[in-house]
Every structure is written in structure tokens, then in C-alpha cells.
Design a protein around this nucleic acid. Sequence first.
DNA 1: CCCTGATTCGC
DNA 2: GCGAATCAGG
Length: 230
Amino acid sequence: MSWTEERIDRLKKMWADGNTASQIAEDLGGVSRNAVIGKAHRLGLQSRPSPVKSGDKAKKAAAKPKAKTTAKKAAPKKAAAPKKAAAPKPAAKPEPAPRAAAGSAAPAPKEEKKGKEENLQYRSVGPGGFIRQGPSDQQAPIPPAPPRRLIPAKPSEEVADKTSILDLNDRICRWPMGHPGEPDFHFCGEKANPGFPYCVEHCGVAYQAQLPRRDRRPPPPLPFGGPRVR
DNA sequence: CCCTGATTCGC
DNA sequence: GCGAATCAGG
């Protein structure tokens, strides 16, 4: 469908009347909402209050990542928990990392919420490790843990002088060093870049300037076929 | 999730 | 120029 004069006039009128792009597209027929918006812009029609562009509150979100092009010593080779490009989300609250090692007092998981469709149970097999059990599995049902007194886990020596999850606050860089479950898992602990969960150095790793679409590398195929598409 | 308009960019 | 894809706020 082409933009005939009539259709353009109709678009102009409806746009001026405050119809949404969707309404206009439906009225004209044969074009999408995007087509209408695109045309309206090309015609130089005045933009109407956009949900995105209204107030400029973006200031607060300022956050100029200004990614350091060179990570330099930033990314600890073997220590970085986030995988390669997948940087932790900016706003993401720190996940409660499982307290690593040392603690011998691991309470048996109280199964309350079962796996949605199955009566799955999760059994701990050590720090950071769990196995799933279904009704048909051989493993006998897990008996409820006997009541016991819990005592604070003794931090391992490796972590004694490092930043544990308990030491974190919003002024401390929470970049993970190593992996949960490892005896020396801890957090960066540097002074956090104000407004960010990480220190300046790790912000440089976590936040990268977005490349123009044509310059982006397509992500490598995931070994398991990628996330489900609904 | 739905909606919105804005923007980008391959065609 | 066109419009799908994408973005980002409500």
C-alpha cells in the first residue's frame, strides 16, 4: 500500500486530532503502526506526548557508563563470575550467594514449594549443588530434618580477610570474585562508584557502550538451543 | 503482559 | 522513502 495523497491527508488529520498511531494505521488499513509513525515523522508532523520522551527525568538515570575500552587488569581472568559479555544487570540486586563452604550446619531443605508440575524435591549435595528428585526416582523420600540448633558458619581462612556477602552495602563493590561454593569466593570490596553496585573498575566491565546495530556481533549459538521462545 | 511514540537502519 | 525491529516509558 502506498502513501497516496488522500492517505497522507487522512494521516495528518488523524494525527493532529490526537489519534494514536495504532488507530490511524487501522483506519487507513494496509499499514502498520510503525509505518504510520515513520511516515508522520518523515512528514515532519509534530510529535505528540510520547511516553518515553515526555519529561526529562533521564538525568537522574544519567549513568554514563562510559565503558573503559580497556578492561586492563579489571577483569580477573579466572575470577569473574559473570560469563563473558553477560554483564550483571545494572539494577539487579545482589543475589543471595550461597554461603560458601566451611559451614557444616547445612539445614536440610524444607520442601514447601514443589516443582510446579512434578513433585520434585531438591536435595543438597554440598555447597552450591543440588539434585532434583521426582516421584519416579529411586531415591527414597527425604526425611524431614531433625530440629537442630544452628550456629554461624565459621568463615574459611581463605575468606577471613576478604569481603563476604555480609560485608556488602551500597558503598562497596559487589563484583563477585570466584564462584559461589568455592572456598575463597568473595566480593571485590572496593569503594563502589556512587550510584552503581560496582567500583569504577568493575563498572568498566559491567557497562559497555552500545555499538551501532550493524557493528554488533551476533551472539554465538547457545549449546542448548537458546531460551525458549513463547 | 499490554500499550504508547521515537529511533535506527537495511532495503 | 519505507517500515520492521528495536528501544524505553507508562
